[in-house]
């Protein structure tokens, strides 16, 4: 059996293609590690609490309830959505939370692994993957809640709902890609994290998360250009059984994200040694 040879030197001689291949290979081979890390974090998160896993349901339910309350009580008057508002709001916030969480996930997993990263050499792609696993876990729980709402409010079953998981995966792909590009600088400067959270809370208002796109005006233009719009609307249309209005934009976004994701993965991979060197842990 020939021994694997590793060479460490200053230059990156490797081509983008090679790097992506190596990155992808590590991603595959680190599935067990990623699963283990995700399970560790999830278990640790809920073990030290009385209600345990229930919290995973409670948090998203309350986000939805807030909007239901605001619309029912008339505090916020919203344009007619064409669907039971709880379902409408819950799909929106669900996808929105997936996007924001997946933008933050790579930085969060990388930061929490800073200690091991500076001591042990393991495939860092596992951190990205474990972030995705954790997201999928949270999403599954939220989707169960969504299903409950869908039937409770009489939306009923539509074939298109079967494609909903694909929309979720797309949202994760999109968010993770952005997150991966931001991680290296976010690891160096905490400013990045702050900018993201401020930026996202602003972005939420120019994205049709809890209301529909206005019929006219500046907001309409912004929302129609906003790349988050097709993500939210397509998944909502799939749940409600409407024909997806932004399907083309959605598909283009998918192609671009998939391409950029491989670039982001390579960027992340070659940045890690610099981050380990600069962030002492």
């Amino acid at each position: 059996m020939p021994l694997e040879t590793r060479i460490y030197q200053k230059e990156n001689h490797l081509k983008l293609g090679h790097l992506f291949k190596a990155s992808f290979k590590d991603m595959l081979s680190s599935r067990f590690l990623a699963k283990q890390l995700a399970v560790r974090d999830i278990k640790a998160q809920y073990r030290q609490s009385f209600f345990g896993i229930l919290w995973a349901f409670i948090t998203p339910m309350f986000t939805a309830l807030v909007w239901v309350f605001l619309s029912r009580s008339g505090t916020v008057t919203l344009t007619e959505t064409g669907a039971p508002y709880p379902v409408f709001a819950f799909t929106g916030t669900l996808i929105w939370s997936i996007i924001t969480e997946s933008i933050n996930a790579p930085t969060a997993s990388t930061k929490s692994a800073k200690g091991i990263m500076s001591k042990i050499n393991f495939p860092k792609e596992a951190l990205v993957l474990s972030g995705v696993y954790k997201l999928l876990f949270n999403t599954c729980i939220k989707t169960l809640l969504l299903l409950f709402f869908v039937f409770f409010y009489g939306v009923g079953f539509h074939v298109s709902q079967l494609f909903f998981p694909l929309a979720i995966l797309m949202a994760i792909l999109f968010g993770t890609t952005i997150g991966l590009f931001l991680t290296p600088i976010g690891m160096l400067y905490n400013d990045v994290g702050k900018i993201i959270s401020v930026g996202l809370s602003f972005l939420m208002y120019v994205t049709p998360v809890v209301y529909v796109i206005p019929k006219e005006g500046l907001m309409k233009t912004i929302m129609e250009l906003n790349p988050l719009t097709p993500l939210i609307l397509t998944s909502r249309d799939l749940i409600l059984g409407n024909p997806p209005a932004f399907l083309n934009y959605f598909l283009i976004l998918f192609a671009v994200s998939a391409l950029l994701f491989s670039v982001a993965l390579v960027f992340y991979r070659i940045s890690i040694p610099i981050l380990v060197e600069r962030s002492n842990a």
């Binding site: 021994l3 694997e4 590793r6 460490y8 030197q9 050499n121 040694p273």
Partner: peptide, 16 residues
Amino acid sequence: NGLINPDEGKVTIRGR
């Protein structure tokens, strides 16, 4: 251990 990259020179390691 491959945790950080050198600024000059080269390391060649064979095996696990």
